Amino acid sequence: MPTRVRNALSAALIALSCLLVPFGALAAWVMYGLADTGRYVATMAPLAADPAVQGAVADTVGAGITHEMDRRLRASPAADSVRPFVADAVRSFTRTAAFRTAWDAGNRAVHDAVLSAVQDGRERAVTVDLAPITAQVKRRLTDDHVPFARHIPVEHTEVPVLPADDLDRLRKGYDVLEVAGFWLPVSAAVLATAGIAVAACRRRAVTATALGTALGGAFLALAVAIGRRLTLADIPDPTHRPAAGAIYDALTQTLRTVSWLLIALGLTAALTCHLTTHVTQRRRTRTTPPADPAHEPTRARA
């Protein structure tokens, strides 16, 4: 095979491999990170101590309890008497060990509900029951002897998590990622190996692959940063954006680590190739014997 053809084929294979690197990392992160219930719960667990998350949870749960109270205890003095204590009780509850347990259980329930809905193929909205958290808040109010706390209704209130229309799109994306999460990284490795193997100068091909990998890691880091900005911009309530930002950062921590790891490994490999090339050239220069002046052609004199 001519050298020019080999170099062109090598460049195409390496470019395609480096293009697949960020997409492969993203797909693998979704399938083996977010789609695993245990890893998801472990990732979300530290957020139970985040003040922004605690505030957002307290506002959401308190609003749900108050709404249920207004519905059940309408035109009753119990509703007006208990309502001022609900927000304080819920906020106080978010700073307890019981809340951390409820937080983990709630995240596990939400993740299991969404994952089951994605995998079972049925067209339905995903909901989570609010009753367990309401029961714990009621128990705390009752223990603190808050008036009419025992009248707080504890019913199986289904809180919507994901509409049926969004579930259909999520299911299609999940099916694609289930395949891409494995095959994209494998394809990237195979293409890079093939590109280096067919190159006329393999050291130069390794350098190009390393730089392309670093560029793919930088592109991934940029995509995560842009995704964070767009995600927070879509939240209508500005007071909940700090909590959403903390959750986004926790979920994408592994992805950011992978992106910086790709950058570091790529630049290190490229620098190593450059240094070894430089050292090899210097050794060749030192070991090459000088030309014998007696055998040099004499110049014609005028």
Rank of each mutant, 00 (worst) to 15 (best):
residue 285 T to A: 15
residue 95 R to L: 07
residue 183 W to G: 00
residue 200 A to P: 08
residue 221 A to C: 07
residue 298 T to Q: 14
residue 120 D to A: 06
residue 58 A to Q: 05
residue 191 L to F: 02
residue 39 R to E: 06
residue 151 H to C: 02
residue 102 A to Y: 00
residue 76 S to K: 06
residue 37 T to Y: 02
residue 71 R to P: 09
residue 161 V to G: 04
residue 84 P to F: 03
residue 151 H to I: 08
residue 163 P to A: 03
residue 228 R to A: 10
residue 218 A to S: 13
residue 179 V to Y: 00
residue 141 L to T: 07
residue 42 A to L: 11
residue 139 R to W: 01
residue 247 I to P: 07
residue 27 A to L: 05
residue 61 V to A: 05
residue 240 H to A: 11
residue 92 S to L: 08
residue 10 S to M: 04
residue 87 A to H: 15
residue 182 F to L: 00
residue 53 V to N: 03
residue 209 T to E: 02
residue 277 T to N: 06
residue 59 D to T: 14
residue 181 G to A: 01
residue 287 T to H: 10
residue 252 T to N: 01
residue 102 A to P: 03
residue 161 V to K: 04
residue 79 A to E: 14
residue 115 L to Q: 08
residue 135 A to L: 11
residue 64 G to T: 05
residue 7 N to M: 13
residue 161 V to F: 04
residue 235 I to R: 07
residue 217 G to Y: 02
residue 226 I to T: 04
residue 125 A to I: 07
residue 134 T to H: 03
residue 3 T to L: 12
residue 155 E to M: 09
residue 273 C to W: 08
residue 228 R to T: 05
residue 271 L to F: 15
residue 42 A to F: 10
residue 79 A to R: 13
residue 17 S to F: 00
residue 50 D to L: 12
residue 43 T to Y: 00
residue 63 A to S: 15
residue 61 V to Y: 11
residue 244 A to D: 11
residue 93 F to A: 00
residue 239 T to H: 08
residue 45 A to W: 06
residue 36 D to P: 14
residue 8 A to C: 14
residue 21 V to A: 01
residue 98 A to C: 10
residue 80 D to V: 15
residue 19 L to W: 13
residue 235 I to D: 08
residue 239 T to W: 10
residue 13 L to H: 01
residue 72 R to D: 12
residue 165 D to P: 03
residue 291 A to V: 12
residue 193 T to N: 01
residue 83 R to Y: 15
residue 218 A to F: 05
residue 185 P to Q: 01
residue 120 D to F: 07
residue 84 P to D: 04
residue 216 G to N: 02
residue 217 G to T: 00
residue 302 A to Q: 03
residue 2 P to F: 08
residue 117 A to S: 12
residue 33 G to I: 03
residue 291 A to H: 10
